[in-house]
């Protein structure tokens, strides 16, 4: 298993159509190593579709996705899978396997891995789930299962991590732990892309934010650039404020507009 150090991922003029409906329209963005990026937007804005396109799970109608300078459509699927790991919004195991076996599935793109057990253990440690290792996944709570799935995302050590609402079903403590884990991954040079509904968490932990509205890229930039009262009010119809506290941005929501 050869470690690929860092890798950027970008999309150019990405458009996705499903039947008559345009789900994503002309989206161009670049995600760099060391950056933690949140993709935000109201329900149905196209967050999940954008992440699925970036992870090569959905093929865009037009436009391209690049890993580094390489068009992903030209990469063999297993090689691409070694570069980017993806956690969908909902993922239900079909079989009642042990949690550690589920985590090990994240190593499949790498073929034969010699230190499989250690890697699985390390990944479980990162999400505070070592104690769950031998439990059957069908007996885990929603939050416990999510942590095990996160370990599956991390276990391959892919340079690009893409997770669709990874914090769903997690309690506050584990949500914070999760964001810290992703922050640490980004600080270690990974390219991390998360779809998030929790704007305070996005403001606090992310370097960049992409704001989607009706399949279009409404804004992208730092939290201060994107989470402005005007833009949030316009897109979500909610009053909000971005304050600074102990050197970090703090996002607070108010009433409906």
């Amino acid at each position: 298993m050869s470690a690929i150090k860092t890798e950027s991922i970008s999309c150019k003029q990405l458009t996705l159509q499903r039947g008559e409906r345009v789900v994503l329209e002309n989206i161009s963005a670049r995600f760099n190593p060391g950056e933690l990026t949140a993709v935000i937007g109201p329900n149905g804005a196209g967050k999940s579709s954008l992440l699925a396109c970036l992870a090569s799970v959905l093929a865009p109608s037009t436009g391209n996705v690049f890993i580094g300078d390489c068009d992903v459509s030209a990469l063999p699927a297993t090689r691409r899978a070694c570069h980017s790991a993806y956690l969908p919004q909902s993922e239900y195991p079909a079989w009642s396997m042990a949690a550690e076996d589920l985590v090990a599935l994240g190593l499949l793109p790498w073929g034969r891995v010699t230190d499989r057990a250690q890697r699985v253990l390390a990944a479980l440690q990162q999400v505070d789930a070592v104690q769950l290792a031998r439990r059957p996944v069908t007996e885990l709570s929603g939050g416990e299962l999510r942590r095990v799935q996160l370990a599956r995302l991390l276990v391959g050590d892919a340079p690009i991590l893409i997770a669709d609402e990874p914090g769903t079903a997690l309690d506050i403590r584990h949500q914070l732990q999760l964001m810290q884990t992703f922050r640490a991954q980004a600080d270690a040079g990974k390219t991390v892309i998360l779809a998030l509904h929790d704007l305070p968490l996005a403001a606090r932990y992310c370097d960049r934010i992409l704001l989607l509205q009706n399949g279009r890229l409404r804004a992208q930039g730092t939290p201060e650039d994107v989470l402005t009262q005007g833009q949030i009010g316009d897109v979500y119809g909610v009053r909000s404020e971005l304050r600074w506290r102990e050197g970090r941005p703090e996002f607070v929501t108010g009433d409906l507009l």
């Binding site: 992870a55 799970v57 699927a77 297993t78 070694c82 195991p93 079909a94 589920l102 599935l105 499949l108």
Partner: peptide, 21 residues
């Protein structure tokens, strides 16, 4: 066999693990 393994987590995850097409 590895494709069948990856399918344990659903078709979407199987594709993301490199077992698409």
């Amino acid at each position: 066999r590895n494709y069948l393994r990856s399918l344990s987590l659903g078709e979407e995850t199987a594709v993301s693990l490199g077992f698409g097409g």
